Amino acid sequence: MDKARPSADEAVADIPDGASLAVGGFGLSGIPDVLIQAVHAQGATGLEVVSNNCGVDGHGLGVLLADGRIARVTGSYVGENKEFARQYLSGELEVELVPQGTLAERLRAGGAGIPAFYTPAGVGTQVAKGSLPWRYAADGTVAVASPPKETRDFNDRTYVLEHGITTDFALVRAWRGDRHGNLVFRKAAANFNPLAAMAGRITIAEVEELVEPGELSPEAVHLPGVFVQRVVELTSAEAADKKIERRTVRA
Rank of each mutant, 00 (worst) to 15 (best):
G58D: 05
E233R: 13
L61H: 05
I15L: 03
R246K: 11
I15T: 06
E238N: 07
P148K: 06
A137I: 03
K82Y: 06
E83A: 11
R69A: 01
V249A: 12
E10M: 03
D33G: 12
V127H: 14
Q42K: 13
R72L: 13
A240T: 03
E233G: 08
G200C: 11
V73D: 04
P218F: 05
A170S: 15
A4E: 10
G60H: 04
G91L: 06
V144R: 13
P16V: 05
V221Y: 08
L210A: 10
A239T: 00
E80I: 10
T248Q: 04
V73T: 04
A174I: 03
K243N: 00
L195C: 02
A13H: 09
L21K: 05
I36K: 00
A138H: 09
F154W: 08
T248F: 01
G18H: 00
A128L: 03
S131H: 10
E233Q: 15
V56Y: 03
E10A: 14
R5H: 11
I204W: 07
E48C: 04
G200T: 11
K129G: 00
S131F: 07
H163N: 10
Y77F: 14
D57N: 15
V34C: 02
F192M: 15
N53K: 04
H59F: 13
P32H: 06
